[in-house]
Design a protein around this nucleic acid. Structure first.
Lengths: 216, 216
DNA sequence: CACTGTGAATTGGTTCACAGCC
DNA sequence: GGCTGTGAACCAATTCACAGTG
């Protein structure tokens, strides 16, 4: 839970830095992300003492500390499995690389996709997956295959030693505890959002806090 | 929190139903989603008494109840703002319609996009947004614009009476409490996942439970 | 004097365990 | 006998409030 918020802090600090801020307080960060300053101080204090009483946090220092904690002070090679419409959009998404996530190989079980050039990568057959994971030091996989294939693909990935999966398929796969799976499913997200769209402000059960959960 | 899990239950029940199951227990659902049966019973009991002691839950009945609770027993008109690469992928994604989410209009501030036909929709200029929201009874918007424009676009949407936003832009927008925002940001997701990818099983701070957060 | 870091208090969420019913 | 529904017990997360410090 705390860890899920750190990237948000990272982003906010980065924004404030771009606006020229050198020193920022938990107050500032709270305003940017609309959370409470106490929450932010508690979260940060969980990992160390990064601030100066009476002043606040040095933006550059805090940025580096957080990047280090999250292991974002290196690049990560990522493999993509499933190069359908969604997979193609993912490969072409320009937001990963600047944050140190490089998609270094793409695979598809459909032979019609194999060989195709997508976003600078040649789509490879699944049989090449093992070699790529081994040779390119890949520990993160993005799964964008149809639901029916997802569990099998994920099982393969786990067998090859993948330790983290970003799962776009609408399934809840079974994986060993040592593997982290994060799901991105806009339909699921919309399906919970509608709960709150009642005519007035009526609620069926006890009211909940606004959440704005970090993704998918 | 509970509400975020209901769509997952919905999906699991739907799967089990397709496999021919008529009656399902919290045990079954727990196995499918790997959560504890107790969690599932508690969650469901929060909204009513849907099961039969000694038997379990009637799948069809439970499905309908959950769909009703989440207001998924109707269709929802959705508008999309931002028809760049990401927006185009969203429009073309075939997963929304079967679940009752219909993208009924698409907008872009870039005049080069306007007029284009994407996934059966003609991209409209932002000036038409107000009319569309009013005439088509839209209460959900999907935002897929660049970060720089996101806050302004979301402010407009709120002003037009939009009550829920699925936000793909990498910003944490400020909205009134009455508006629900859910973010989908794969980069943020990857940035927290790397925390756990330490060489051995080492951890910087207290170990956390696996989460597999529902999306984004 | 402003702001952090943090124990203590509180709130919320999950798990336990069992009474009640089919 | 099997399984739900639910108080009670437990555990986790957030908020409070203030001592300590630059």
């Amino acid at each position: 839970m705390v860890v899920e918020r750190l990237p948000l802090y990272l982003r906010a600090i980065s924004n404030l830095t771009k606006q020229g801020r050198e020193v920022i307080s938990s107050q500032d960060l709270g305003a940017e992300l609309h959370t409470t300053p106490a929450q932010i101080r508690k979260d940060l204090s969980y990992f160390g003492r990064f601030g100066k009483q009476g002043r606040g946090y040095h933006a550059g220092r805090l940025l580096e500390e957080l990047r280090h904690i999250l292991q974002l002070d290196r690049t990560w090679n990522v493999t993509l499995v499933g190069v359908g419409r969604l997979g193609k959009a993912i490969i072409s998404y320009p937001g990963f690389a600047p944050q140190g996530f490089r998609i270094v190989a793409a695979f598809d079980a459909d032979s019609r996709q194999v060989g195709q050039l997508v976003g600078g990568l040649t789509v490879q057959p699944m049989s090449e997956l093992e070699r790529a994971v081994r040779e390119k030091d890949v520990s993160i996989a993005i799964v964008a295959v149809p639901a029916t294939q997802a569990q099998a693909v994920i099982q393969d990935l786990v067998k090859l030693g993948i330790r983290a999966i970003l799962n776009y398929a609408p399934v809840t796969p079974r994986v060993p505890d040592s593997v982290r799976v994060k799901a991105i499913d806009p339909v699921l997200t919309l399906q919970s959002i509608t709960y709150y769209l009642r005519p007035d402000g009526a609620s069926l059960a006890g009211e909940e806090e606004q959440d704005e959960r970090t993704p998918v």
